[in-house]
Design a protein around this nucleic acid. Structure first.
Lengths: 153, 153
DNA sequence: TATTGTTATACTCTATAACTATA
DNA sequence: TATAGTTATAGAGTATAACAATA
């Protein structure tokens, strides 16, 4: 089922289209998040914390697929916004745990609604089974990511 | 078909997974491109030029879904690397046309091979029909992008 | 020695908006 | 006035690598 969007076999790469769509979706989402003074990466972190409250930064970095340094920076920002708390681990003076503040926790559903709205703009025209397919396929790739190289430094 | 990756309805967003996977794929690809001294965005531009040689920067920016300013910067870099040429349009002194140099053109298949290799790492475990589905769905979204907001400034 | 988290540094990618030259 | 392209500025997002503290 070739279309005018695919003029050459040489340049038909899934990674390319993935990046193209992801950039557009994330950019539109960033605009929506501006109203709540949250960035996309901050949202991703809060979303993860919402699920696994409380968690060590190192574990979070692995779940998010980014470095510990990146987590440090995001958390610094979210601390300043009173969205998360950082606590020392009494059992290991090197370790910490992160958790959402009540304020942060209550914001997540609002952000989630914006994400739903953003999703709708980009994916609602797809048939339901196509949408589900896309979701399953993406998660399938995530499950496999151990096989490939994501920075964990 | 719920899995441990989806612990909450509240946080099941396609945009989230798209970004997660896209980041991982692009990062791994960036590492591969380093050996040719090309970045991912430069590759995207060269890929587009490969298909529509020669083209105006403004048209290219629309095809790529980025601003004209972004194209200017990428082209500046690719000029320095002798990958593209920038020519004045004799019919309109404001306009230009961009094209790949012979060197740039000959590099594209090499980069394409790296992209294939990268795709393989992330998508080969998927059944063929799932992979095709993913590609079609992504292109489907791109076709619709006129409906949503991509910066064109 | 290994691990946890931080920090310094440096990119890439991209936008916004003002600007210049031309139409 | 409108359009083509440039530029100045800024910020998000992220990595790498060295570091300090602790285990």
């Amino acid at each position: 089922m070739s279309t005018s969007i695919e003029p050459s076999q040489l340049t038909a790469h899934l990674g390319y289209w993935l990046r193209y769509v992801s950039n557009a979706v994330s950019h539109a989402f960033a605009r929506k998040l501006e109203s709540r003074d949250v960035t996309v990466a901050e949202w991703a972190l809060m979303r993860q914390l919402y699920e696994t409250d409380a968690i060590a930064p190192s574990a979070l970095s692995q779940q998010m697929g980014v470095t510990r340094g990146a987590v440090t920076k995001l958390v610094d920002r979210l601390l300043a916004k009173d969205m998360v708390v950082r606590e020392d681990n009494p059992n290991d003076a090197r370790a910490q745990t992160l958790a959402l503040t009540p304020q942060g926790r209550s914001l997540v559903p609002e952000l989630s609604a914006l994400a739903d709205q953003n999703d709708a703009e980009f994916f609602n025209h797809l048939a339901v089974d196509k949408r589900n397919h896309l979701e399953e396929t993406l998660k399938d790739i995530v499950r496999r990511r151990g096989l490939t190289s994501i920075p964990l430094s």
